[in-house]
Design a protein around this nucleic acid. Structure first.
Lengths: 158, 158
DNA sequence: CAGACATTGTTACTTATGCAACTAAATGAC
DNA sequence: GTCATTTAGTTGCATAAGTAACAATGTCTG
C-alpha cells in the first residue's frame, strides 16, 4: 500500500475528505502503540515493571544519578507520572533515594543493587527485541528514520 | 544531535548500557505522544471530541457506513474503546445507528447530518495542522517516512 | 530579612484504557 | 432441529494517566 501522498485531498470540491490510512498522526500513533505493546511484554510480563517504570530505569541506567525533575525534563513525562513510577520502583527495591543536601525539596535517585542487576538482565532482551524489529528496514532506512524523528521531535534540551 | 546508530551498545564489556535518546521505541512513543497531544487541541479543545471519537469520525468520513467490528479491524482499536467512542458520538448526535437487518447483533454506523457538518469543519483544520507539521521535513523525507511506517506497521488487512 | 513568587514532589479527583465476563444473536455439527 | 461454539457489542472492575490543588522549600526583590 502506498502512503506517499499527503493524506488529505479534496475529491469532490464541495466535500473535504480524509484518508486515515495516509494520515501521519494516525499512522504514527498506531505504530508507536503496537511497538509499545509488543515491547512491554518484556518488562511487564517478565519483570512486572510498567512502561513508565521501565523508562525511569533506562534513564537511570544511563545517567546514574538524577532527580525526578530531571527525569521529567529528559523524557517529557508528566511529573506525576514520574513520581508514581519512582515510588513504585522504590517499593520494589530497584531504586535508592538520597535527599539532595543542596535542595531539600529534591531527591536523588539511583539504581539499587537489585536495580542494577535487573537492568543488566533487561537491556540485552530489549536490545534483541529492537534488533529484530529493525530487521524490517534497510540500514539506510534506519538512518533515515532516525533523522526524521529527530526533526519532528527534537531530542532533549536539558 | 545524531541518532543514526543502534541505540544499544556495550561500552564497558562487563556492563550493558542503553542510550534512551537513540532507542527507537522510546523516540517513536514520544513523537507519537507529542503529535497526538498537539493535534488533540483541535478536536478536543475546539469540538469536545476525544481522540478515539475523532478516529471513528474520520473512518466514517471515509467509509460512510461501518459496523463497530469493522472499525475495530481497520484501526486496531480495542472493541471496548470503539464501543465507548461510538456511544459518546451517538449521544452527541454526530452518529446515526441502523440495526443491521442481515445480522441483528450488529449496528450500522453513519455520520448524522450534524456529524457530516462537524466533519467538514474539522478536516480542513486537521489538514492544516498536518501540513504545517510536515513542513519540518523535505518532500523526500515525507515519502521515506511513509514507506518506513508501512514496513514497520503494515496497513490494514480488512 | 520579609514578603511575593517559583519550584519539587505528592495527593485527590477525574477520565481513559484494558481485560474478563456477560448477553444476544449466528453458525455449525450431528 | 438441538446443542456447542463463535461472534457483536456491552458492562464491570482494575489500572494508567492527566489536571488541579497542596506542602515544603528555594529564590529574588526591595
Amino acid at each position: 500500500m502506498q502512503l506517499n501522498d499527503l493524506s488529505l485531498m479534496p475529491i469532490d470540491p464541495s466535500n473535504v475528505s480524509l484518508n486515515l490510512d495516509r494520515f501521519l498522526p494516525y499512522r504514527l500513533n498506531r505504530l508507536a502503540h503496537n511497538v509499545g505493546v509488543s515491547l512491554a511484554t518484556i518488562y511487564t510480563d517478565a519483570f512486572g515493571i510498567s512502561r513508565s517504570q521501565w523508562r525511569v530505569m533506562a534513564l537511570l541506567g544511563q545517567h546514574q544519578r538524577l532527580t525526578a525533575k530531571q527525569i521529567c525534563n529528559m523524557t517529557h513525562m508528566d511529573k506525576v507520572k514520574v513520581s508514581r513510577a519512582v515510588n513504585g520502583l522504590v517499593k520494589l527495591n530497584y531504586l535508592q533515594t538520597t535527599p539532595d543536601k543542596a535542595d531539600k525539596r529534591a531527591v536523588l535517585l539511583t539504581h539499587s543493587v537489585e536495580g542494577k542487576e535487573l537492568f543488566q538482565v533487561m537491556v540485552p532482551q530489549v536490545q534483541a527485541w529492537e534488533e529484530d524489529f529493525l530487521k524490517k528496514l534497510s540500514v539506510q532506512e534506519i538512518s533515515q528514520l532516525a533523522t526524521i524523528i529527530d526533526k519532528l521531535d527534537p531530542s532533549n534540551e536539558y
